[in-house]
Amino acid sequence: MTNPVISKCPSHPVTIHIAGDYHAARGICRKFCDDVGLCVTVTPTVYIYTGGQEEGIRVGLINYPRFPKMPTAIEAYALELAYRLRDGLHQESFSIEAPDHTTWYSWREGDLQESTQKLDVDQFGT
């Protein structure tokens, strides 16, 4: 038995959160990965929120040690894929979660006003 090749790189997991059909999302992700040379995970999930719930997916990207990338490149791939998912799944919003921040994108009417209101952090006890 030979010794394995072992490689490390800095971790930088990024997750896309979006509602929509799991099977359609898999196809969109497969095409994107074939187009740009990437590997992602696609996991079905349920988003539960005040007054309802919605089926969706989580798409994971990591800094893969075999083909390491800068954090900005991983986030750029995530954003490009999220736009493709948004179009292909006919969604009006998505979020991208990085290790140190989460960014929400929305094209829904009314969200512009809501997003400009200040968050009262005291409501969360922080």
Rank of each mutant, 00 (worst) to 15 (best):
P71G: 04
Q113L: 10
L89F: 07
T72G: 09
P71T: 06
A73Y: 00
Y83P: 00
T126A: 14
R58Y: 07
P68H: 06
H23W: 07
Y47G: 07
K31A: 14
T102Q: 11
P99K: 02
G37R: 07
Y83S: 04
S7C: 09
H101K: 14
I57A: 01
T43E: 12
D111R: 01
I6D: 06
D21E: 11
G20H: 03
I74C: 08
V46H: 11
L89N: 07
F124P: 00
T15G: 01
T15D: 01
I16N: 05
T50I: 10
P71H: 04
S11D: 11
E92M: 12
R66L: 14
S93Y: 07
Y77L: 15
P68A: 06
T72Q: 15
S11E: 14
T43R: 14
H23P: 00
A73V: 12
I28V: 12
E80I: 10
I57N: 00
A24V: 15
R86E: 12
D87I: 09
C9V: 13
P99Q: 01
P71I: 03
Y77I: 12
V121W: 13
E75F: 05
T15M: 03
I48F: 11
Q117M: 10
L119G: 03
C9K: 08
T103V: 15
G110Y: 03
G110W: 04
T41D: 10
G37C: 08
T116Q: 15
Y105G: 02
T103F: 02
L79E: 11
G20C: 00
Y47K: 09
A73L: 08
L112I: 12
V5L: 14
P99G: 01
S115Q: 11
K31W: 08
R58H: 13
L112K: 14
S95Q: 13
K8R: 11
C29W: 01
T103I: 12
P65R: 08
L112M: 12
